[in-house]
Design a protein around this nucleic acid. Structure first.
Lengths: 105, 105
DNA sequence: AAACTAAGTTACGAAATGTAAGTTAAAAAC
DNA sequence: GTTTTTAACTTACATTTCGTAACTTAGTTT
């Protein structure tokens, strides 16, 4: 009875993007490379989940992790080319929200 | 320490779209008006959550609900104009996934 | 030696989600 | 006229995910 007529690539994309925090995290990183603590403070996400999501996005090659051997050590996260390619998606959401979403009511 | 420089409209849009199942549900309804049971079978979502999400999208005026007084009664769900306006977002995700996502690995 | 800092990790309670069975109302079958 | 059927939910409960706060690690400065 169940039909699977949805493209598996699209389904996987949705799985990643719909995972709580991921889209906002990518949006945040569109502004440029950022440190763990910066992202955490900007988004108001818990460290437990932030670490989890960064690992997920890293394993999907959407985010890259760089160790800066200062003291104490600093980690920088940035979008890969694959990650930057999501900009049009975020732009489309921004566009839609500017036309159709109002914060009242 | 926490900065909120994110547009509240955009933030609300993300809150709706990132809620599990919502994007897939909207994608499904882009194909046209559909009954509760059809959506349920196509997406493989539980009835508990489907009902909850449909009510949420209805209250956001993204989905409209129509009662067809047949026997037994049939309910049809369809996208509103606001809902249809999300098509470019879904198209952007589709486009990205076709270029960057591979199901292997 | 003690304190500090960034980036995590851990334990645990709270919230969201999935599962499966039950409800409702009307009419068709028996 | 009682039982069955059907679509769209609803409910109770188990499982999974998430948030909170405290803790860990390693290399400096104090």
């Amino acid at each position: 009875m169940e039909q699977k007529n949805i493209c598996p690539r699209f389904e996987k994309a949705l799985k990643i993007l719909n995972h709580r925090w991921n889209t906002l995290l990518i949006y945040q990183l569109l502004e440029g490379p950022q440190r763990y603590s910066t992202i955490k403070n900007q988004l108001g996400i818990s460290s437990r989940v932030l670490t989890e999501r960064l690992k997920e996005l890293e394993s999907e090659h959407i985010v890259a992790r760089t160790v800066i051997p200062s003291t104490p050590v600093v980690i920088e996260y940035e979008l890969t080319e694959k990650g930057h390619a999501l900009a049009p998606v975020l732009k489309a959401i921004e566009q839609w929200s500017s036309v159709w979403v109002n914060t009242e009511e």
